[in-house]
């Protein structure tokens, strides 16, 4: 029997157990309510909810969550630049990186936010945003590819989904898809609000940002972009903004990021012989 079958059986057993636990809790809860006692049912109900909250988020559910977060990002940053040539260019660079990322088999969507701050964001299911402020600091296509690669890495490693998974457990919601949105819209909204707060205000764990830096640069290098371009960009941003943690409060400081990317380039054996494509970037076409 191969590993794939073993994993499938393990998954089936896990979910069988979760399904039985949830069903048992629901039945017990109903019985307890009838009899007027609730403590035992509450405990079992809690266990059932916990089991549901532990369920991995499937792609269809991820798509709804990603869109809901994308809506909040667009609303908070005043919309996106509606320039067809720029949109096409950013999507071409982004798709090129995404297609050789560690998660190339889902659709990705890229847009430039109408905001002059320096930042970029990713929501689940491949929604990637870069601010116009950050775009203005970029000098060539290789730098843009690395920035988009960083965000694609958050998607491929499911960093935001981990936050949502924890949020689901805390909110006691077993699923965040269509049924949850209809049956418990407030809980669904709470989940999205928690994820948006983490994404935009608090930031992900620093090790996740470091991982996204390293992986994003690898993704861009796989396409053929020069991996040292990202170092040049981070160094430029450090000169511009310094290492003040108040800036880039959602990321580690630039010096730490530059060191980590340098180490990653060495450990992955990436060669500084890729292309930069400064002229094509200047044309944005």
């Amino acid at each position: 029997m191969n590993m794939r079958n073993n994993r499938a059986i393990a998954a089936a057993i896990t979910f069988g157990a979760i399904a039985m636990l949830t069903a048992w809790a629901d039945v017990s809860l109903a019985a307890d309510k009838k009899s007027g006692g609730s403590r035992f049912g509450d405990i079992l109900g809690g266990l059932g909810t916990l089991a549901g909250g532990l369920m991995p988020i499937g792609y269809e559910e991820e798509q709804s969550l990603g869109q809901a977060i994308a809506l909040q990002v667009v609303a908070r940053f005043g919309g996106t630049l509606e320039q067809p040539e720029l949109m096409r260019y950013v999507n071409l660079v982004g798709q090129a990186v995404a297609l050789t990322s560690d998660r190339p088999d889902i659709p990705y969507h890229f847009a430039v936010l109408k905001d002059d701050s320096i930042n970029a964001f990713a929501a689940p299911a491949g929604y990637v945003f870069i601010t116009n402020g950050l775009l203005k600091q970029i000098h060539n296509e290789a730098e843009l590819a690395a920035v988009l690669g960083h965000e694609i890495a958050h998607v491929s490693q499911k960093h935001i989904l981990e936050v949502i998974q924890r949020s689901k457990q805390l909110a006691g919601v077993s699923q965040a898809g269509l049924a949850a949105a209809k049956q418990n819209p407030q809980a669904f909204k709470n989940i999205i609000d928690t994820a948006v707060k983490k994404l935009l205000d608090e930031g992900l764990d620093q090790e996740k940002e470091t991982e996204a830096d390293a992986l994003g640069d690898v993704f861009a290098a796989r396409v053929g972009y020069d991996p040292t371009a990202y170092l040049t960009l981070l160094t430029r941003l450090r000169t511009l903004k310094g290492d003040d943690p108040a800036f880039f409060k959602t990321h580690p400081n630039f010096s730490a990021r530059i060191d980590a990317v340098q180490n990653s380039i060495q450990s992955h054996g990436l060669k500084a012989n890729g292309v930069l494509l400064a002229e094509r970037f200047a044309r944005r076409s």
Partner: peptide, 16 residues
């Protein structure tokens, strides 16, 4: 490992 649904997520979809 695949980008869409992993084995657990697929099983989860069946369950849902």
């Amino acid at each position: 490992s695949g980008g869409g649904d992993d084995e657990l997520a697929k099983a989860g979809r069946l369950f849902k």
